[in-house]
Structures are given as C-alpha cells and as structure tokens.
Write a protein that binds this DNA or RNA. Structure first.
Lengths: 257, 257
DNA sequence: TAAATGTTGTTATAGCAAAAACAACATGAG
DNA sequence: CTCATGTTGTTTTTGCTATAACAACATTTA
C-alpha cells in the first residue's frame, strides 16, 4: 500500500496536468483498480468523501473516462486507461494546434517592429530551459557555429544536433575533450585548460560560449548557489566582445595543439 | 480589435488547457504581439493589473516561455510560439505517458476479479463519447461484427474502421443505404425500413445495434430531448436479446432483398 | 540644487471562483 | 423498519485574480 500509494500519487499528479482535478484523478485511479465499483466502494478506495464522489463521477462521465450501469446501486466502470489517456490527450493536442496557429498568426503579423530589441541582452534561467533555447539556436544556424565549451553539462545533448548541421554550416569547437569520433566536416580543437588558472577546474562551468552566424551569441554561466543561467544577445557590442574572446582562445587552442 | 479580441480569447482558452492560467495566457499573448515589451506595456496590452504582471512573468520564465533583459526597466521577450507550445506539450506528453503506464500497470495487475461485472449494462452519454467507445469496440473485434444500422449520425466515422477489419473478422451489416462501393469481404444488406411502421422514419434514430464476437452488444438510442445515449453489455441476457433482434431483422432484410 | 512628479519593481491584502470537505435529508431495497 | 444509497445544500480551503500602498530610482521643473 506504501509503494502503491507512492505510485498512485505520481499518477494522480500526471493526470492533473492532463486537466483532471485531484478528486477526478483519485476516483479514476480507484476505478481502474477495481472496475465496476459502486460509489461507496470508490469512496473507500480513493479516500474521496462519499458525497463528493457523485459530482466527480459525473464529470468523469462527461469526459468519457467512466460509464455507469443501470442497476441500483449504480456501478461504475473506467474506460481502459490507454483509451482514456489518449482521449484526454486528443483534446489537449487539438488545443495546442489551435494555440500554436493563433499565436503564429499574431507573431507573423506583428513582424517585430525592430524597436531596438536586438540591442538587448536576454537572460534565461535553469539548465533545462537553457538547453531548449540553445538547441533551438544552433538548429537555426545558417552559416557558422563557433563553440567554446568547457563544461560537461550539455555535451551529450548538443553533439547530435551538431552532427545534423555539420554539412550545412561551418562548425568550430574548442573544448577539453570529445567522446567518440570527430566528424570530418567539423573543426574541433581539444585542449585542456591550464590547471588552476583563470578558467578553473573543468568540473565547474569554466565557460560556454556559442557564436552563431557571427551575429548571435549565447553564454552560459552557472554559480553553485543561484543555479545555471545564460545570456543571449544579438547586440553588436555583446557579439563583438565574445568574438574577441573566441578568437583569443581559439588561437590559443590551435597553437599548442 | 474586436476580431483580434475574439481570436485572442480563443487562444487564451487553448493555452489554459495547456496548463497556463488566464493571466499567464494573456501576458504571453501580449508578448507575442509586441516582443520585448516592458512590464507596464504588457499590463496595458493584456489588461492584466500591473502588479500581477510580475509574478505572472516569473511563472512564464520558469516555464521557459519568456526571457528577460538585463536592462532597467526590464524588457521581456517571448519564446517563439511554436517552440513555446511544443515545450508545453512535451511536458504534458511525458505526463501522459507516465500516467498511461502507471494506470496500465494497475489495470493489468488487478486483472478484473470478474465479480459479475460482465452481467451489468453500462451507459454512455453524448454522441462524441459514444463514437469513441463504439470505434474502440469494433476495432477490438476478433471474430465477428454484426451491425443493424438505421441512423445517419455515425455512418461516416464507422465505415473506415470497418474497412480495416473486413479481412480479419466477419462483418454483416443491415442498413438503409450505403455510400460508395461495398467491399467484397463484407456482407451488407440494404433495405429501406417499412415507412411509418415500427422503425419509424429514417431521420430519427430508428435503431443502431452492434453485436461483436457474439458476446458484446452496444445499442445506441437517442431522444431529441435528452440527447443521445448508448447501452453496452456483455451480459448473457442482453446479448441474447439483441442477437434475436438481429436475427429477425437480418432475415427480413435478406428475404426481400 | 531641491522639490515635484512619474515610473518601476515589490509587498500586502482583499475578493472571487472552483474544488474539497462536511452535514443533513430523501429514497428505496431488503 | 433499517441501512446503505443518492441527492442537496453549506462551509472551508485553495489558488488565482485584483487593488492598494510603498520604497527605490529616474525625470522634470522651479
């Protein structure tokens, strides 16, 4: 019952993000456990107050997750889980499509007044969020990708994306090590950083700099306390600064290769 | 602004079922309209109280839908809509998967104590819900599908599914008309009901009976007032009743073909 | 310069609606 | 009758919504 309960709570959470309330989730789970239960049994199994079970079941019936018997007392039956989840997902997906279309229409129409936004520097927080933005950035590169990469965190996620782009854009990487074979059409310089020097030990986020198409720069910086954060900009000065940074370390890496 | 507002409300609704609150949706939409806006501009564009804009933006940043500039005042930038929606969907989908897996595990484990559930008759309400259940029912048929079908409502949806099954299970249909060609491996008898008789005019839901594998029956019955509802059962008596019903009409249809 | 004004970001708090929890009553089968 | 069922109505809680007030800072004006 402990592992069960644990598991059950997880499922309930997942169901909640599919649009069910806590009670709806609990009742549905209880019904999956013993199909054909009565309201009272559901109440006992799920811990949901007996009187609340009825309106909750009504909602579940509306959502086509439960059906009722004609007997008295009524018995309730869950739709098979995969069917039920699929049914919920279907309606969410259709909302996703309509949201995406609507938003894209607006996004295209407004066509970005270019109000100097490209002079700003944008922040992103959280490793997961940064990963998404970064992958998006490099997967939209049209000319060149230059990477200065002294951090293990995202290595695995980035390499496959680079592989995809390696024939269409020029790729140059400076890093401390590389697992597997280096693709021919990529220029990779492997160079351990000078120990205990500026860059610091490799385990810390020494530095991660992405320069894309010579016009966009993304820099990842993490501090143990505040978590990882990243800066992104298309601002002239910002890009130039990190281009110089890149040039310096890139020649350093080439020299003593 | 009217059509805009209309559209915007629709998008907001869609975004809400992706897990955003009303304000989160409004703020995000406003940001898509003018990227790089300040908090105050967002407030003006979205109608969200200025003080509420800040916590809402925080949540959106967490969800990786928005990034911030380092300037003062801060400027905010939306993630591109398709990316943002995709990001939301990804997390929902992963929840869907974990819910489905968890529920299926429970569903399989409990293996249906066969506590006489199969003797019960289950109700389903609403045309959409019935359609889903019905398609599921026939798509899981293993031996035979026998259909008595005097109603236009679901015809279009059902025929394609029958097409798929026509080689693996025996299909017999009695209905009042059939659009397109009748597949060879299906037995279809077309027979107009006797006008003004028991069955009533074809426009009403004269009768829809599905018999699957000789052991499951689903009957659709609609009344103008209460909407459409359906009964499903694997109960002996229920199935036998509608098997007799089927036999009668099927021979009637064959006779004067 | 100094006071007045306006803006930004933050905090506190009241309002509100949906859901959760409880209590009371009506019904109906055994 | 009696117990469990089913229904109804009310209260509490919760999370979002909404408003007001405030300090910090920048901008304007005397």
């Amino acid at each position: 019952m402990d592992e069960q309960g644990e598991n059950q709570a997880t499922i309930a959470e997942s169901l909640k993000s599919l649009g069910l309330t806590k009670y709806e989730a609990l009742v549905y789970i209880a019904l999956v456990r013993v199909a054909g239960a009565t309201a009272t049994e559901i109440h006992e199994l799920s811990g949901v107050p007996r009187a609340s079970v009825y309106p909750v079941l009504d909602r579940l019936i509306q959502k086509n997750l439960v059906s009722v018997s004609n007997t008295s007392p009524k018995h309730f039956n869950p739709v098979r889980p995969d069917e039920g989840v699929a049914s919920l997902m279907k309606s969410i997906e259709s909302d996703a499509v309509s949201a995406r279309e609507g938003l894209n229409r607006i996004y295209m129409e407004c066509a970005h007044f270019e109000r100097g936004d490209q002079e700003l520097i944008w922040s992103t927080y959280g490793e997961e969020n940064i990963r998404i933005r970064l992958l998006d950035l490099i997967s939209h590169a049209t000319e060149s990708i230059r990477i200065f990469f002294y951090w293990g965190g995202l290595r695995k996620q980035i390499i496959p994306v680079l592989e995809e782009k390696k024939n269409s854009v020029s790729i140059e990487v400076v890093t401390d090590h590389w697992e597997g074979e280096i693709p021919e059409s990529m220029n990779v310089w492997i160079k351990k950083p000078p120990g205990g020097h500026d860059i610091g030990p490799a385990k810390s986020l020494g530095g991660v700099v992405f320069l894309v198409d010579g016009s966009k720069a993304m820099v990842i910086m993490g501090s143990e306390e505040e978590g990882t954060s990243a800066l992104y900009s298309e601002a002239r000065g910002f890009v130039r600064f990190f281009t110089v940074y890149w040039n310096f370390f890139s020649s350093w890496a080439r020299k003593k290769a």
